[in-house]
Design a protein around this nucleic acid. Structure first.
Lengths: 206, 206
DNA sequence: GGGTGCATGTAATGGGTTACATGATTCT
DNA sequence: AGAATCATGTAACCCATTACATGCACCC
């Protein structure tokens, strides 16, 4: 019993250390608090909570409501806290990266430049928005109650997002300059016909 | 026919624009060239190639070898190029983030500080190594043949990795300072007993 | 009257990793 | 002698998203 402990369920367990909550609340809290480092869908949350309850890692109390459907409020148990702590002690394995935008840019020679430019510009917009949100988050939820034991860690997570977003924006600036330069060079009459050489990709660092 | 076109298969298609290759080669090339932005497992690659061949997006030639198993060399077809170009034109949807290391740090109040420090330090090491690899990649594979049509795009991808890694390292420095400060404060006799206030997480930006 | 939010859940589907099987060759 | 590399593939499994189903309440 209590076999599977994916980081998904652990995330829920961790959020329940803040306060008892319903599945619906958890979904919103994930987006609001750790949306830049984690995501959960309801199709994942509700079944996970059931399993957690079955394993005795959370308790469940049902709040009756007239009209509205019942709210199931979950709270973490002692056993749940222990399991969370155990999980926290396991060194996290490095990420498996999957950045579709960059993948497409990597194959950029196969696409018209204006599309690449549009994609990078779209990224600038979304990341800019995220950055603003994070700066607000840090200010609102964290700096205002520094006595809160979670505050320093939430701040670190927010700072990570900020620093990363700024780096991405910096890269985007540099890249847009280069892309526009390439676009200009393309529209100008090509002189040197660049023929694709045969490249040896075998001798690669594994 | 030719329905499914996950970004996974498109990545393979894209790599085959460089030169014809076997599934095994593709696996190694993914790690070597775009390992910091993409990953593929062989359990994914081999079936994908079969589907691509069935859909007429790639051709397959079998090279016989004595002793060794046959090599199946795949090359992209005209139809394959067209599909790739179509996919490149679709604006990439924003990433769904999943950073386990940061998630654990977010729940840092539930764990002993020395473990958090160890985790961040581990990240510094791996990311430092990746950074070096990328700097070498940029220099070796790209700067040396600037006439190669893919070169500018490969460089952009490599630059992204570099900038991101540097940002992460910068964050790690700042964070390690803070964590060590917290560790010291913890080992000192606690005076003010910080009691966890009830926080309202309902009013969150969605 | 219609959209949005509250609130829970299930089923279908897809995407992807891991582990296994096989077997010769080359390096240490 | 034994480990790692070359080379392909399959099956089991797991994780996760999407879409669907339900139904009241509140706001415009």
């Amino acid at each position: 019993m209590a076999r599977r402990s994916s980081s998904s369920t652990q995330a829920l367990l961790g959020l329940l250390t803040i306060q008892p909550m319903s599945g619906y609340d958890l979904g919103r809290l994930v987006r609001a608090s750790i949306g830049h480092i984690w995501s959960e869908s309801y199709g994942q949350i509700y079944p996970s909570l059931k399993r957690l309850a079955a394993d005795g890692l959370v308790d469940c109390k049902t709040e009756k409501h007239k009209g509205r459907p019942d709210r199931r409020i979950y709270s973490i148990t002692k056993k749940g806290r222990e399991q969370l702590q155990q999980w926290l002690a396991v060194p996290p394995q490095p990420e498996i990266p999957r950045n579709e935008m960059l993948l497409k840019l990597f194959f950029g020679a196969q696409a018209p430049t204006h599309i690449l430019i549009r994609n990078v510009e779209a990224m600038v917009e979304t990341h800019g928005a995220v950055l603003q949100t994070l700066e607000r988050t840090e200010h609102d939820a964290i700096d205002k109650n520094p006595q809160y034991p979670d505050a320093p860690y939430w701040k670190m997570a927010a700072r990570f997002g900020q620093i990363e977003m700024k780096a991405h924006l910096q890269w985007a600036e540099e890249t847009l300059r280069e892309l526009r330069r390439l676009a200009k060079a393309q529209s100008a009459p090509a002189k040197a016909h660049t023929r694709r050489p045969h490249v040896n990709h075998k001798n690669a660092s594994h």
